[in-house]
Structure formats: structure tokens, C-alpha cells
């Protein structure tokens, strides 16, 4: 099993963004998906840095793909989506709109925001040219087992969401803008102040969710670090690690250590909890009663 760095979900300034991919070039991850997933308004701030980041990663021996937006509505977003293939690396579709622009038979990847819940959809995507599918984080282990077995049969690599605040919803409305009494068109980039998302807490003070512009994330940082054995047995070939600020190299190293057997899952979980925004982990979508649950000891 190996590691994929997923696309950054947050709004980072261009230097932080480029610095992150410089760091990932030296990490133990085998592949990196980059580009704008959440909000097309963020892209102009770092778009011209993407080619150099792709080149750095390719030079370091990483496999690279470019993500589509998660929700495509505007004309310029449609054009952006249609042009994704021009970079010369595979496109990871996170909205089926991107698939409508992939030439017939060309290789593409499928991201966790495309609804791949069953064999029929998996087979259909494979027949269209999907070579790698990251399953939706919501799926229970029983579904992951069925789909990973099918992936092995069809020669499609299957990934799962291994680390990061969970992408629970995407909307036409920007919640950062709403919080500041603005609209999406006049957002003034309020989300820039929260490079790991802004915590949404219940009125009883219980951490619950995190807002990230038009996206809603979990408060907890999902981690399947304690489930590696089950996932490996199922035939899952990669864990996806979703970028956050802080020592992300240490996150990658913790996962690599667990995959290699040199670090115990519980030791790694302690390291990861210390690095997670808010310090809370979850793995309930895979094996718990609900997504927010955590199978390990409370930290």
C-alpha cells in the first residue's frame, strides 16, 4: 500500500502553496493531486505557480494529476474544466463535468467527491478509462471490500480517504462570506484567514464541523491509520492524505511508518492527533456507527 497527497482543500497564499509542494517532492508519498478543488475564485492567486510545482514533483519521481473543481456552474468554471487536460498530466475528476471533456479512452482518475458507491458505477468508469478511483469517504468497510476486489479484477487502483478533515458537503453558497455578512460574489476572500477551515461548534460548545468557503468539512480529522490491516486485506492500494498546515511531512512519515510496520498504529495516531486541527481524529465512516466516531482511545 502507498500514499497519495490529495488536492489542497483550503485557500493558501501562493508562497505557502508552492512551499508545500516543494516539501512534498521530498516526502514518502508516491503521487500528488493538485489544483483547485473547492472555489474557482481562489485559483488566480496561485494558478501561475502550478506548472512549476508539477515539474518539481515530476522531477522528484512523483506521479502527478490535476484535480477538477468539485462543483462546476459558471461559464469560466466550465472553460477551466474543459482546459484541464492541457497540462499533460491525468485529470482527476471530482465533478462528472470534467469527465465530459476527457477524450474517449484517455486515462483519468476519479476523486472522492464523485459518487462511486457500487460495482455498476465502478465498472462504467473503468470502461471509460478510469485507472485510479479514490472512493467516497462515506463508504463503510463492507462496500470498500467489494469495490477494491472489483478494482483488482479490472486493473483499477483503489484509494480511500486516509487522512484529513472530511469533505462532507459542497454548496452554491459561501459560508465564510455569509458569516461576514457578504455574498459569494463579494466575499473578499474571508476564507483566507482559516488555512485549515473555521471550526463550527454547537451552542453547547461541542466541536462539530468546519467551514471552508463553499465547502463544509468535519471538525475531526479522519484517519484510517488504525485500519491499515483491514484495508490492505481488502486490496486497497493507497491511502489519500489531505493537505493541512503545519508539519505535513510528519503526517506523511507517520503513515509511511505504519505501512512499513516500523510505527505502531496507536503511536502514529498520537502523533497525528497532535498535528490535527483541534486534535480530534475519526474513522467512523469505515467501521463506526457514524462518521464522527473514533475507534482508538480518546486523545
Amino acid at each position: 500500500m502507498d500514499l497519495t497527497i490529495g488536492p489542497n482543500q483550503f485557500f493558501w497564499d501562493a508562497d505557502t502553496w508552492a512551499g508545500f509542494y516543494g516539501e512534498m517532492a521530498d516526502s514518502a508519498a508516491l503521487r500528488v493531486v493538485l489544483g483547485e478543488l473547492v472555489c474557482s475564485k481562489r485559483l488566480p492567486f496561485y494558478q501561475d505557480r502550478i506548472p512549476a510545482a508539477v515539474e518539481t514533483l515530476l522531477d522528484a519521481g512523483k506521479t502527478v494529476a490535476l484535480t477538477s473543481l468539485a462543483l462546476v456552474t459558471l461559464k469560466r468554471e466550465r472553460k477551466l474544466t474543459a482546459d484541464l487536460g492541457a497540462m499533460g498530466v491525468p485529470v482527476e475528476i471530482n465533478d462528472l463535468t470534467a469527465l465530459s471533456h476527457v477524450p474517449d479512452g484517455a486515462e483519468f482518475w476519479v476523486g472522492p467527491l464523485v459518487n462511486v458507491y457500487n460495482e455498476g458505477t465502478f465498472r462504467w468508469l473503468a470502461s471509460r478509462g478510469a485507472t485510479r478511483i479514490c472512493l467516497p469517504p462515506e463508504l463503510p468497510l463492507s462496500s470498500v471490500q467489494v469495490l477494491a476486489a472489483l478494482g483488482a479484477e479490472l486493473g483499477v487502483a483503489v484509494e480511500v480517504w486516509g487522512f484529513g478533515r472530511l469533505p462532507l458537503a459542497i454548496s452554491g453558497r459561501c459560508y465564510h462570506a455569509r458569516l461576514h455578512g457578504r455574498t459569494k460574489d463579494n466575499c473578499q476572500f474571508a476564507c483566507e484567514d482559516d488555512p485549515d477551515g473555521l471550526s463550527v461548534v454547537t451552542t453547547d460548545g461541542q466541536p462539530f464541523l468546519a467551514m471552508n468557503g463553499v465547502q463544509t468539512l468535519s471538525d475531526s480529522t479522519a484517519s484510517l491509520v488504525r485500519k491499515v490491516e483491514e484495508l490492505r486485506d481488502a486490496g486497497v492500494s493507497a491511502l489519500r492524505l489531505s493537505p493541512q498546515t503545519g508539519a505535513f511531512g510528519s503526517v506523511v512519515a507517520a503513515y509511511r511508518g505504519v505501512l512499513d510496520g516500523s510505527v505502531s498504529p496507536d503511536d502514529a495516531a498520537r502523533v497525528l492527533a497532535a498535528l490535527a486541527p483541534g486534535g480530534r481524529l475519526s474513522d467512523g465512516f469505515l467501521t463506526g456507527a457514524r462518521g464522527a466516531d473514533w475507534s482508538g482511545v480518546a486523545v
Partner: peptide
């Protein structure tokens, strides 16, 4: 629905049951 339909797992995060599944 405030979120894009079929793209939301808020409910299963809190309860284990979602619109999609």
C-alpha cells in the same frame, strides 16, 4: 437543500445514515 444534492454526507457524519446511502 442548502448543499448540492447527492454531494452531502453531513447526516451520516452525525448519525450514520445519509441521503445517498
Amino acid at each position: 437543500c442548502v448543499m448540492a444534492e447527492g454531494r452531502c454526507s453531513l447526516s451520516s457524519y452525525a448519525t450514520g445514515e445519509s441521503p445517498n446511502m
